[in-house]
Design a protein around this nucleic acid. Structure first.
Length: 789
DNA sequence: CAGTGAGCGAGCTTCCGCTTGACTT
């Protein structure tokens, strides 16, 4: 039996620390928080000064009893949870729940998992910081009050099972607000002028120089006038300016920056990044992945230096300490870095390899020298005009950290890469090959993706490293926002070109504004957001979290009692909750679009029981209203009267075939043709409003042809085995279970025996389920009930 | 797998932050 019990939050951490401390120390993990407010009801005693009702969570019962047992046997219990608000609370909950004694309990903290740091911590124990614990209790109770009082309002006024909270509701607001900005955005056009100049260099060779006019023209007439002056103008170099410049590396990764870079460079979703990082962490390959700190341990700095020297040389080393600038950062851990800097690559899945490599490069680069550049600008005069062209180029004099890593940006890639410029002299005369004035449009604000939303949240101090990924999932699970693509829109632009003394004027077409995997607000998200912002502007304010954080800081500093702080909030908040519950209307987000010209009745859109719908007439009128669902890509907010009217043109009869009527309509799975009792999906290329009788018959016959070819052969006495052509290629089916056919086997040549072999080799799905179900039943009774069905 | 849209009204849903597994097509 060990004399000392050390309790940390994470089991992987426990394993590492145990190695440092030797056999007198047993290290166990609490797996995070061990208890929380009661799940049933609100879990706060409002009659008794907001007394929190704590309960050991169901999944922590086992952990707690194990810890209790070990703590009884130990002489000293060392509470080594993280040094932040949550960590302090974990230590306190452990102290309370394990019924520890003050004399035999020590609170210790360390920011990095190194032997020195841990030994140092053991030598410098302290007491539990009660004020910091109280700040956490205030945070916890506030979040419970906000979440559990707002959500029921939504159940009543909008739809059951919805949710609201300090973090998620503001995250949704960011997306709704951005969507409105985009909808209201009016692109501004201007003319950008580019020229290609030529000259002869010292060796008599012709060289080219591309330059852009420093000013843009707002209107076509001005651009044309400028090109006119260029017709007979002289072009000469006015000045050449060369300036040194430098680029510095980005700091090492935090959770948020790792999520952003993995999204940009590897295309990972936020959740995927965290899963892969978790595996690397558990394998001991990287430090903890949920952190807001950019700090590196001295050990890591030293190891980085060694690596950089052996890889690139001493002059590439530049050891830096980065400062954290993010709001509310609590810095309980190090930045995310490789555990061993001399491990350049790891074994594992492709994803693990790629993420590790990213982390390694980012860490190493952060300790490397600045890149030194030389920026050159050549200014070119145009006789008869005060405007100047400028050509700019950039040369890397010393690559520094760029040798290993370059941070990506969200901005569209600037297509004109700056590069080396030809050698030229002041006053040199230039000839033009062509000058082009091209109409350009200002860009609308980009929609948020998962990672860029996380970045914005971090900037506002909303959410924590451990909650970014879950919050992003929650707002999608509640259908407040959806991840989706928007195709590019065709846009015309004007090009004026001056070449060999002649100006041509053309209209060209471009595709602009395509977006992939971005977050779009749904109608329900918009309705919920508008409702909450109207009635609870304080909570929905982007600064609400930052404001309450200040309050929590005061509590942590001992300046104010946590119950007093909560009381002040609750006394203002709760009456609004009651009032809203009683006096607000049911929220359907109705918009009246205008009058249906054929019936003269009102046309409106709103949220219905099964989603957004358009409605002709009102329920007060004698004649019943007509209804039509909105299409998936339409929204209450942006649909126009004409678009809504079109919805009522379906279902549409499109003639007869084999004596039966064909109708075209749009269902849950998109546009389809209905003929007799069968349904035929319309290919994407066919517009349901345009489909002709002939085309419909063609589609029906095509589908029948495919159906006919579906069965390759049947086997067995009662034809119980069918070899079929499916969406993913040939397969065979028996007893409603599908089986794969190995590559290289001709499906038409399959024999009954071979099929039976394959069936034996691929165990039946039902049997598998049963086995899992029984195993699960021991731990979770619910899983058993599920698998029986 | 493709038509809905009013309604008896039971009993359910929900927050944010710490941490890992357990389950599965």
């Amino acid at each position: 039996m060990s004399k000392n019990l050390v309790i940390v939050e994470s089991p992987a951490k426990a394993k590492t620390i145990e190695k440092f401390l030797g056999k007198d120390y047993q290290v166990m993990s609490s797996f995070g928080h061990i208890r929380d407010l009661a799940e049933k009801g609100i879990g706060i005693d409002f009659e008794n000064n907001y007394q929190p009702q704590y309960v050991v969570s169901a999944d922590k019962k086992k952990t707690v009893s194990e810890l209790k047992k070990a703590s009884k046997d130990a002489e000293i219990v060392w509470l080594a949870s993280d040094e932040d608000r949550e960590g302090e609370a974990i230590a306190w909950h452990l102290y309370e729940e394990l019924k520890l004694k003050k004399d035999s309990t020590r609170r210790i903290v360390f920011h990095e998992i190194t032997k020195d740091a841990i030994l140092h911590a053991i030598e410098n124990p302290r007491d539990i910081d009660v004020n910091l614990v109280d700040a956490q209790q205030a945070r916890r109770v506030l979040d419970r009050i906000v979440g559990f009082e707002l959500s029921p309002i939504l159940w009543r006024k909008v739809r059951p099972s919805l949710s609201a909270g300090r973090v998620q509701s503001v995250a949704v607001r960011l997306i709704v607000d951005r969507e409105r900005e985009i909808n209201q955005f009016v692109p501004e056009a201007s003319y950008r002028v580019n020229a290609v100049f030529s000259s002869v260099d010292a060796n008599g060779k012709t060289v080219e120089l591309k330059a852009e006019l420093q000013q843009r023209f707002a209107i076509k007439v001005e651009a044309l006038a400028f090109l006119e002056t260029c017709k007979n103008a002289q072009f000469s170099i006015d000045d050449i300016i060369t300036k040194p410049a430098k680029k510095s590396p980005a700091p090492p990764f935090t959770t948020s920056t790792l999520q952003q870079e993995a999204a940009r460079k590897l295309g990972f979703s936020v959740a995927q990044t965290m899963q892969v990082a978790q595996r690397l962490y558990e394998a001991g390959k990287i430090t903890y992945m949920r952190t807001d700190s950019v700090n590196l341990s001295n050990l890591a700095l030293g190891a980085s230096k060694v690596e950089i020297i052996s890889m690139a040389g001493q002059k590439y080393v530049h050891i830096r300490k980065f400062n954290n600038k993010t709001k509310g950062a609590q810095e309980a851990h190090e930045a995310i870095r490789p555990s061993y800097m001399n491990t350049h690559t790891v074994e594992g899945t492709v994803q693990e390899k790629r993420l590790y490599e990213l982390i390694w490069k980012r860490t190493i680069a952060s300790q490397m020298a600045d890149a030194e550049l030389e920026k050159t600008s050549i200014y070119i005069n145009v006789s008869g005009s005060q405007h100047q062209f400028v050509a700019s180029g950039e040369v890397i004099v010393f690559d520094g950290f760029l040798k290993v890593y370059m941070e990506s940006t969200d901005d569209e890639v600037d297509s004109e890469k700056e590069s080396l410029l030809p050698a030229m002299k002041n006053g040199e005369k230039l000839l033009t090959t062509e000058i082009v004035a091209q109409e350009r449009f200002s860009q609308k604000p980009p929609r948020y993706g998962e990672a860029s939303l996380v970045r914005k949240m971090e900037e506002l101090g909303i959410g924590r490293p451990s909650t970014y990924a879950p919050t992003i999932s929650t707002i999608q699970n509640r259908s407040y926002v959806e991840k989706g693509d928007r195709p590019a829109e065709k846009r015309e632009y004007n090009v004026l070109k001056l070449k060999v003394g002649k100006i041509t004027d053309k209209i060209k077409e471009e595709n602009a504004g395509a977006e992939k995997s971005k977050l779009f607000p749904t109608d329900i998200g918009t309705v919920v957001n508008d409702f909450l912002t109207e009635y609870f502007p304080t909570i929905l304010n982007y600064n609400f979290t930052a404001d309450v954080e200040k309050e929590f800081d005061s509590i942590a500093d001992g300046k104010i009692k946590w119950t007093k702080s909560i009381d002040k909030f609750y006394k203002k908040f709760h009456p609004i909750v009651e009032d809203t519950m009683k006096n607000s209307e049911r929220q359907v987000g109705e918009r009246i679009l205008g009058i249906d010209p054929t019936s003269g009745r009102q046309l409106s859109v709103k949220l219905g029981k099964y989603g957004p719908l358009a409605q002709i007439g009102t329920s007060e009128e004698e004649e019943k209203p007509l209804f039509a669902s909105l299409r998936k890509e339409q929204s209450i907010e942006s649909i126009t009267l004409d678009e809504a009217l079109d919805l009522f043109k379906l279902p549409r009869q499109i003639g007869e075939f084999e004596g039966k009527v064909m109708t075209v309509a749009i269902g849950r799975f998109g546009p389809y043709i209905r003929h007799d009792v069968s349904f035929y999906s319309l290919p994407k290329t066919d517009d349901p409003m345009e489909v002709t009788t002939e085309r419909a018959i063609e589609i029906i016959e095509e589908k029948r042809e495919v159906e006919k070819n579906r069965i390759i052969q049947t086997l067995g006495e009662n034809a119980e085995i069918q070899v079929l052509n499916g969406r993913f290629g040939p397969y065979f089916t028996c007893d409603k279970v599908n089986y794969k056919i190995p590559k290289g086997t001709d499906p038409a040549m399959l024999t009954l025996e071979r099929c039976q072999e394959l069936m034996a080799a691929q165990p039946e799905a039902g049997a598998k389920k049963k086995a899992f179900g029984r195993k699960a039943a021991v731990i979770k009774p619910k899983a058993k009930a599920k698998s029986k069905k």
